[in-house]
Each structure stands twice: as C-alpha cells, then as structure tokens.
Design a protein around this nucleic acid. Structure first.
Length: 281
DNA sequence: AGGCAGGTGGCCA
DNA sequence: TGGCCACCTGCC
C-alpha cells in the first residue's frame, strides 16, 4: 500500500505515538485500528511494504478509506526533503532514525473529540477514555467494535455520562462543544476551506480548545502541516535541542513554524519520535 | 500510597 | 501580556 516499507518501530510511532488513540497492538506485530466506520489491521511486511486486512463486510470501505487515512496521495518523501535538515543536524538525525514516518489524515470530528480529551493525560489514558466513549456512545461497526460517537450523538449525552467515561473536567468541554456544534450545521466542515490562521481562530471559539488542541486538530484532522502544536514535551525538546530556554509556548510555536517551514508539524512528529526513543515522553 | 499528568480558562497585577 | 491556580481522577 505504501511506496516505502515501514519498519515495525516506525509503524508503532505512526499509530501509537500521540497522533491517534484508537490503535492497539495485537500479537505478531499486527496493529488494529478504528476510524470513522472503518476497522483495519496492519502488519509491516519487510520490503513488501505494509499489509492490511479488514472484516469482510468492511473490505470495500476500508480499501477506499485506508489510503486517504494514511495520506498515500501525499509524497512524504518530498515533504521531508523540503524540511531544513541540511542546516539542522538534530533534525537530520531524527529523519534518518524514522524513515517513512508520516502524518495521518484523520476524520476532523474524531480528532477534535480525542484532543478535547487529551488535556494533562498520557496516551494510555486518552486511549481508555475514547475507548469508553466509543463502546458506550458510538455505533457498533462489527460485533464488539464501535466507532467514536459523532458530535450529533454526543449532543444527546449528559455531561455526567461523559464524566463516567473517565473524562473528568474534560466532560464539560465535550458537552458544551457538542451543544455548540449541534446549533451550527456544517461549522466544522467549513474549517477545511479557511486559511490556517482563521481556521485556528474559529476552532478556539470552542470550550476546551486552546492553542495546542487547535493545532493538533488542524495538523492531524485537517492536513494543515504548518501547524506546530506546543505541549510540555515539545517545549522540553526545543529547550534541549534548540536552546530555547525560557521561551513561552507561543514563541516556541512561532519559532517552529519559521524554522521548519510549511511542514513544521511533520518535523514536530520526528522530534517527538526521537525523544520517545530516548526514553522520554 | 499519593503525586502527577502530552491544557485550558479565569482571575489578578 | 504574564503568571498562577483550579479543574477530575486513574495510572505509575
């Protein structure tokens, strides 16, 4: 499916490195993931690239949806080559360490939901929350596997019921956002057609969506690769690798977009992968 | 066993 | 603007 083979480590980084929260490791290097109405299994296959499979009744929609989800129409090799690795030795070694690392193109609705849940939580816990949301409030796709609830569905769920999905104070964000989106048909979809800056401003009108969450939603759910989400980890990374000690998050985000350019978000993913491999994060 | 966590929003100088 | 703190609660 992919033009270049993905090593098991890079595949793990793509599906379980904080971009998405609905992939789980199965035996024998297989990953199973759920997005929109799709369920798929993935397995690295050496030089043959990446093998996929899906439940028979979903084979058609997964065959259609998987390439878009993995962004196979984008030439990540070219995007990576356009990053400033020639003048940035740290970036260069990150790129070399994770060949084939890519950004997923996830459904916008789901990306917003997941990152609204992400505040001060680690990946494992975010995965638990969204799994509960899916099991309790999302439509069953195949026996035992549910998709995430749509915002229309979330608008019918009480804040208390959301809290019982381990959301804690994030339940209020999700609940209020659901009410707002319920009154604004097409509001989310319009973001796709707005310039980055305006799309981000619009997103930030939603409760629980600040700078960081807005950038994650735009990067992972709307293909805005110039977005450069700044969380505590990227702050530490930038301090350590680029000597930005004492910089405010907004300054770091600005530096990131200036230094890394049009695909700053792609660079950010590599920086993350590197630090995680060092045992941080 | 208890602190801490991949943010945000509100309040204060 | 810039800093500080409450917000929930399940993991390590």
């Amino acid at each position: 499916m992919l033009r270049e083979p993905l090593s098991p480590a890079v595949l793990a980084e793509v599906v379980d490195g904080g971009q998405t929260f609905r992939w789980n490791r199965l035996p024998d290097g297989v990953w199973q993931g759920v997005w929109a109405g799709c369920v798929a299994r993935l397995k690295p296959a050496g030089s043959d690239g990446l093998l996929w499979s899906a439940p028979q009744e979903l084979a058609g929609i997964v065959a259609d949806g998987l390439p878009a989800y993995f962004g196979t129409m984008l030439r990540f090799d070219r995007l990576v080559d356009d990053l400033p690795w020639r003048s940035d030795a740290h970036l260069a070694r990150c790129l070399k360490a994770f060949p084939g690392l890519r950004l997923l193109r996830q459904p916008l609705e789901e990306t917003l939901l997941c990152f609204l849940c992400s505040a001060t939580k680690q990946i494992v816990q975010i995965k638990q929350m969204v799994e509960l949301l899916a099991q309790r409030h999302g439509r069953e796709i195949v026996p035992g596997i549910h998709r995430l609830p749509t915002w229309a569905e979330l608008a019918t769920v009480s804040e208390e019921a959301l809290r019982s999905c381990q959301l804690g104070f994030r339940a209020r964000y999700v609940s209020q956002t659901a009410q707002i989106l319920a009154e604004k048909a097409g509001w989310l979809d319009q973001l796709e057609y707005l310039p980055y800056r305006e799309a981000k401003e619009r997103l930030r009108e939603l409760p629980g969506v600040g700078e960081k969450v807005a950038d994650c939603v735009l990067l992972f759910g709307a293909g805005r690769f110039e977005a450069f989400p700044v969380d505590v980890w990227i702050t530490k990374t930038m301090e350590l690798r680029y000597e930005l000690d004492g910089w405010a998050p907004q300054q770091i985000a600005h530096f990131g977009r200036m230094h890394f350019g049009a695909c700053a978000g792609l660079a950010q993913q590599y920086l993350f992968a590197w630090e995680r491999a060092q045992g941080r994060g």
